[in-house]
Design a binder for these strands. Structure first.
Length: 783
RNA sequence: GCGGCCAUGGCGGAAUGGUAGACGCGCCAGCUUGAGGUGCUGGUGGGGGCAACCCCGUGGAAGUUCGAAUCUUCUUGGCCGCACCA
């Protein structure tokens, strides 16, 4: 609808459609039904394409592709090779989130409450060699550039900023009192270096090297316990601080004292350095920990109200430093600066900016994804596949009956000659996270058949995307990865911009109740019948559990098929109904109540126009001028509503317009054609088929489609009314309405208002202390 | 815990600080029909008169203002994001 409107307003619109088609569901279908993932996928695409075409979407099908087309993922492989050469794609050992059910690695973003986002299984930590996009190299730019995205929702920018997570602080190096296993010091990250004199312990994550070097009895068991508990939901909810004293001690950089080193379950290896210094008086977690293990608590920041004892609540606000040697008397911000200077001068640390964002692990041990185009050679190491040999195609003959990665246990696919030395070597069998596929598709649409990823001419002409419309669920991951990929492509010379999406609109999601049968299987809404006694299965009559209203998803089967509405009422009714229901940015609980009303309106509009034909010439009358004014106000109102994405309001304005045309008196006939043509053209983006039908009836023999006509522009002369209805208030309460000339003087307006009987009654002879006249709006008497 | 959004009739929702509830759904009544549906007409926030009109009303409390659903503060509830992030 937006594409049709923008086209009418003179824009050259590219409205493409493609398919994000790699991923787990295809492999699951293959396992369950013995059908090849490709066949399953392309069948689904054919069904969905037909569905979209029935809706009458003005899509440019000549640019269509699927991400599982070798022509697409081959070009993606070329981009990956560029990124490898630019140091943006790296292989490194890393603690990864391992989904034991799906048998694959998950990105942090795919771990929800400690569980795999698809399998729901508790995620384990594993140390593996994996491919990473070094998105962290762009962290400062990805954060700063958010400021320039003035057509993005604030909410999305905020979510991205939080996700990137910039925090200023210091790294402090603590020398061990006695080196252990070759380790002489431990570095921590802190945002509160000002509280360094309030230190009472140092704590490291279970995965930290210092933890591993601890030989005390019980240490290994404690570490194993932490790892097993991992990120499971139970642990997070309990939030119980647990620790193990290693017996090691570190030296304070300034006061010469030593402090104990603990292993603590609340310290994360992934953030900062995996080690912290504990200042219980001014950090709640440290305080909980210190109280539990009876560690010292020394306050060093004094609130303005004076010294206070620390009980079970840490003091985390600003104040004045004390108990802190050379920092005494300073404010918290001043003390931070001062202590960082001192750390740097003494070689004990430095001020740093720390980022929450971590590198993007994109390796998946899966078949149905884009193969990472490198070859492992015993002599040459990791060698990129020469671009002339792309695409690295997925083999067709794969066996899903064995668990694990089918590419890995395929008999021949991975055995190749090294491109450098020609000795036997092995293909990489990891495939890409499917977020990679969706991180540059918008650029590919500009030149979808090119034998390079994108042609400069095409991307320079089309990008950035002027209006991106997608669900709020993409606020962080997809949009962040796309912003990263665009920068990577820019640095590789493929295009010349950093930000892919100039304007972003986040649609709400369509939600529906979910249903579960007695055997625990999810049921489709059409299988369920609601009776007074409760929900039952339509065929078997057995009781059905009604679940919560949530976003429609294939896995929960709480989906509805717009095809049913199209079949019964037609595409225009379906479109009109979907647009009229509620504001597009809001979630919509799907209900077909009201579809009949939408169908009624399409019928009504048809009768309104067809019933007025043929239109004869008629004399200009005051009534005709009134109808013309109504028409042009409708044009302005609908245009404004569409510009602001208030589609439900646009629908309401067209309803009002239709009501006004129907109510117009017979002597307004001279303005009837203009009104009927206008309502036809205004409703065309929403109901394109009906609009063309009506247009051809209004202009028999005409050779233009509504879709080709420019958008109507309201005539300012007709928008300006001759008279205006003013509300008259007394003490802010409405007492009357008066109709006055638009250019009536204040005095004329006031005397007209005072002439109203009801106004006089409200004033009741009291003194008028103030009179307000806001032209075209309101009159108010204060008595 | 931190950050953000939201709260308006039976329902979805309108409302540049200026007539709260547009428009639609639903419901009620009447006309049309043999009946039902469709269609058409009227009504539909609460209360009082039952007409003209008056009082109350946008989760709650206070404030700014001639005037607040809208701005400010506090508060309650719901939703979303992040989360032992040092």
């Amino acid at each position: 609808m937006v594409a049709r409107y923008k086209r009418a307003t003179g824009h050259l619109v590219m409205h493409p459609m493609g398919w994000d088609a790699f991923g787990l569901p295809a492999e699951n279908a293959a396992r369950e039904r013995g059908i090849h993932p490709g066949e399953w996928t392309y069948n689904n695409i054919a069904n969905m394409r037909a569905e979209l075409q029935r809706m009458g979407l003005s899509l440019d099908w000549s640019r269509e592709f699927a991400t599982c087309d070798a022509e697409y993922y081959g070009q993606q492989q070329a981009l990956l090779i560029d990124m490898l050469e630019a140091g943006l794609l790296e292989r490194k050992q890393a603690w990864v989130n391992w989904d034991p059910v799906d048998g694959t690695v998950l990105a942090n973003e795919q771990v929800i409450d400690g569980k795999g986002w698809r399998s729901g299984a508790p995620v384990e930590k594993k140390l593996l060699s994996q491919w990473f996009c070094t998105i962290t190299k762009y962290a400062p730019d990805l954060l700063e550039a958010l400021g320039g995205l003035d057509r993005w929702p604030e909410r999305v920018k905020l979510m991205q900023a939080n996700w990137i997570g910039r925090s200023e602080g210091a790294r402090v190096n603590f020398a061990l009192a006695e080196p252990v296993a070759g380790i002489e010091a431990c570095e921590v990250f802190t945002t509160r270096p000002d509280t360094l004199f309030g230190m009472s312990f140092l704590a490291v994550a279970a995965e930290h090297p210092l933890a591993a070097s601890c030989t005390r009895p019980g240490a290994a068991e404690f570490i194993a316990e932490c790892r097993a508990m991992g990120t499971s939901e139970a642990v997070i909810e309990q939030a119980e601080k647990r620790g193990f004293d290693t017996g090691l001690r570190v030296k304070h950089p300034f006061n010469g004292q030593t402090y104990p080193v603990w292993i603590a379950n609340f310290v994360l290896m992934e953030y900062g350095t995996g080690a912290i210094f504990g200042c219980p008086a001014h950090d709640q977690r440290d305080l909980d920990f210190a109280r539990k293990y009876d560690l010292s608590v020394l306050p060093v920041v004094q609130p303005p109200t004076g010294p206070q004892a620390i009980g079970d609540i840490a003091f985390t606000d600003d104040g004045t430093l004390y108990n802190s040697d050379f920092l005494n008397g300073l404010s918290v911000p001043d003390a931070k600066r001062r202590v960082i200077d001192a750390l740097e001068a003494g070689g004990h640390g430095r001020g740093v900016v720390n980022w929450r964002l971590r590198d993007w692990g994109l390796s998946r041990q899966r078949y149905w994804g884009c193969p990472i185009p490198v070859i492992h050679c015993d002599d040459c190491g990791v060698v990129p596949v020469p671009k002339s040999e792309l695409p690295v195609r997925l083999p067709q003959d794969v066996d899903f009956s064995i668990p694990g990665n089918p590419l890995d246990h395929h008999p021949s696919w991975k055995h190749v000659a090294c491109p450098k030395c020609a000795k036997p070597a092995r293909r990489e069998t990891d495939t890409c996270d499917t977020f990679v596929d969706s991180s540059w598709y918008f650029a590919r649409f500009c030149s979808p058949r090119a034998d390079v990823p994108v042609t400069r001419e095409a991307v320079d002409a089309w990008l950035p995307v002027d209006q991106y419309i997608g669900g709020i669920e993409h606020a962080i991951l997809h949009l962040l990865y796309s912003r990263f990929f665009t920068r990577a492509m820019r640095d590789a010379g493929h295009l010349a911009l950093a930000e892919p999406f100039a304007g972003l609109f986040t649609q709400g999601m369509v939600t529906h109740e979910s249903y579960k049968g007695a055997d625990g299987r999810w049921l489709y809404p059409e299988e369920v019948e609601k009776r007074d006694t409760g929900a039952v299965h339509r065929d078997t009559g057995e009781a059905v559990t009604v679940g919560r209203v949530e976003a429609m998803s294939k896995s929960k089967r709480n989906t509805v098929d717009p095809g049913a509405i199209i079949g019964r009422y037609g595409a225009d009714t379906a479109r009109w109904f979907i647009l009229s229901d509620n504001p597009p940015e809001r979630d919509m609980e799907w209900s077909e109540a009201g579809v009949a009303g939408s169908a009624r309106f399409t019928q009504r509009l048809y009768r309104l126009v067809m019933g007025a034909l043929p239109l004869a010439d008629a004399p200009e009358t005051p009534a005709a001028r009134k109808l013309r004014q109504v028409t042009h106000r409708a044009i302005a109102a609908v245009t404004h509503a569409l510009e602001t994405f208030a589609f439900n309001v646009a629908v309401a304005r067209i309803h009002e317009f239709a009501n006004a045309i129907a109510d117009a008196p017979a002597d307004a006939a001279a303005a009837k054609r203009e009104a009927l043509e206008a309502i036809t053209r205004l409703s065309a983006p929403m109901m394109p088929h009906l609009a063309e039908q009506l247009w051809s009836a209004l202009r028999p023999g005409g050779d233009q489609l509504v879709a080709e006509l420019p958008w109507l522009v309201a005539d300012p002369e007709l928008l300006a009314a001759d008279t205006v209805v003013l509300a008259v208030q007394v003490n802010g309460k409405l007492r009357a309405n008066i109709e006055v000339a638009v250019d009536a003087s204040d005095d004329a307006v006031f005397s007209a208002a005072l002439a109203e009987e009801n106004v006089q009654r409200a004033i009741d002879g009291k003194e008028i202390r103030k009179r307000i006249h806001v032209r075209g709006r309101i009159v108010n008497f204060v008595v």
